[in-house]
């Protein structure tokens, strides 16, 4: 079966104004809205479109996280994933641990394409896809804004600092999604009902033979230095005068 694996992560919703706990032990998560990482949503959407074009037969979503992140897997199923796999793990997972777990899932599922978001908007690490590709010894095409499949290869346009780069990669490969790859669909109510019946399997990290690393310890979490609100000027003349005064013009 031609299968696409999409790795997704639950994060604090991008609309939430994230606040640091006063004791510096992390950010406030109590009562905060949690969602699929927006980049992973884009990755999933791309997989669904590939399947809808007839270029894949099955889309499997996988996540690593505590019991209640099954809710986000249900969202993925409601969007259109055929199956979901929940790698149950409480607490944080370092990117290399996540990559190791996904590698085990790849071994079981044999996908011809693995899609992930380019970064998760909580830790902003931008590492997991690349690490997975390295461990799998397969190509990586990160920051994708366009993906075309052509038999045993894929042509990927990447958003890089210089502009748009195009890579040709042999399949299977890992592709990480950038914002402009597509616009994810909205989930409709009947889809949510249907999603409840779709298969969702659970495994533990231990089942996969992966030992969670804890090699990077967060010592302290702080709010960033705040910029001060400045002054308002009333017209262009004042603006130019002010900038000259500050020596920036």
């Amino acid at each position: 079966m031609k299968r696409i694996l999409v790795c997704v992560k639950r994060v604090i919703d991008f609309n939430v104004r994230v606040r640091v706990k006063p004791d510096g032990s992390g950010v406030v998560t109590d009562g905060v809205k949690l969602s699929l990482n927006p980049f992973d949503e884009i990755a999933l959407e791309e997989a669904l479109r590939i399947k809808e074009r007839g270029e894949a037969q099955e889309v499997v979503a996988v996540t690593i996280g505590p019991a209640d992140c099954q809710q986000q897997l249900r969202t993925a199923l409601a969007m259109g994933a055929d199956r979901a796999i929940h790698v149950v793990h409480d607490g944080g997972v370092e990117p290399l641990t996540a990559a190791r777990a996904f590698l085990q899932i790849i071994g079981r599922e044999q996908p011809f394409l693995v899609l992930l978001g380019k970064q998760a908007i909580d830790d902003d690490n931008n590492q997991t896809g690349q690490m997975l590709a390295a461990l799998w010894q397969r190509p990586q095409a990160t920051f994708a804004s366009k993906l075309e499949l052509a038999g045993t290869t894929a042509c990927v346009t990447r958003e890089v600092d210089a502009g748009l780069e195009t890579l040709e990669v042999d399949l299977p490969a890992v592709v990480t999604a950038d914002l402009r790859l597509n616009e994810p669909r909205y989930v409709k109510l009947p889809d949510i009902m249907k999603a409840k019946k779709k298969p969702l399997d659970s495994v533990s990290l231990a089942d996969l033979g992966v030992v969670p690393g804890a090699r990077v310890r967060t010592v302290r979490t702080e709010p960033p230095a705040q910029r001060q609100r400045g002054i308002m000027v009333k017209d262009c003349g004042e603006l130019v005068a002010e900038l000259r005064k500050r020596g920036v013009l």
């Binding site: 310890r217 010592v219 979490t221 709010p223 960033p224």
Partner: peptide
């Protein structure tokens, strides 16, 4: 072995310590 980096789009700055010897 100890560095600072931004998370949450720069809304939380973390100080991280990497296990010795790595």
């Amino acid at each position: 072995s100890r560095f600072r980096r931004p998370t949450y789009a720069g809304n939380a700055i973390v100080t991280v310590e990497v296990e010795a010897g790595l």
